[in-house]
Amino acid sequence: MGKEKATNRVLSIFFTILSLAWIYPMFMILVNSFKTESSINTTSVFELLGASNFNGLANYVNALTRQGFAAAFMNSLIITVTSVALILVCCSMCAWYVVRVNNRFCKAVYFLFVFSMVVPFQMLMFTLSGLADRMGLNTPLNICFIYLGFGAGLAVFMFAGFVKTIPTEIEEAAMIDGCSPLQVFFHVVLPIMKPTYISVGILETMWVWNDYLLPYLVLDSTKYKTIPILIQYFRGGFGHVELGPMMACIMMVIVPIVVVYLVCQRYIISGVVSGAVKG
């Protein structure tokens, strides 16, 4: 038993060092986001803060006021919340219908949903952006219609997988008691599916919030930017890269994610596991 304990101690030390190394890239950005512009270059990145290079919150103020961070954050928030809400409501209803009715049309639709999960975005990026442009889907609210269609594959697949495990007797009993299908869905099926809603919600949120290419191609990018587009613009659009404000932006993107993650860790991890095992 003594040997076990010694191994555990060595492993503990090893993983502590590895964890610190794992966090280091984020720590490095944090430190540099407080430096003055002139003291950030490729050789001084590793230096810690001192009196000579400390810039206070100036980079954050700059990012919020001059670089359009606040607007981009709001756009990302609107797109993510609306899209995920739409996906959860519409796709769970669709999945229940597809499983319960299960005629030839439903089978075909289900097959197409599953197929769409596999197809890489490059296959339709050009035609989709053209179509979205002509249909006026290039604003933060309208783009959610596309996200519903694009997120439907994974969402319907996961919801349908769960619906198949629900015994139909409960729903039939509710039906005999005089419930309409709509009431059956919202009063009986929806509460049973709560864990799946959480899993799907987390997976779709992670995807929409971080998505770069779809909003970049579809949105009218002179008017609307999301956070990933803004970060990408720092290199492309400004000529000289202002590293200080850029790192401040990166920090303001990471911090909310880390906070949400630490609070809902249990749900996020179980959501990811169930998504992977079914996908």
């Binding site: 519409c90 197409l112 197809v119 339709l124 035609t127 596309i146 269609g149 439907a152």
Partner: peptide
Amino acid sequence: PLFVLPTVLSFTFGFIIPFFQG
């Protein structure tokens, strides 16, 4: 119309049409 139409409609415009057009 209530249960499948919204999803299938956006799926048609967001995936099926661009896919075959592509």
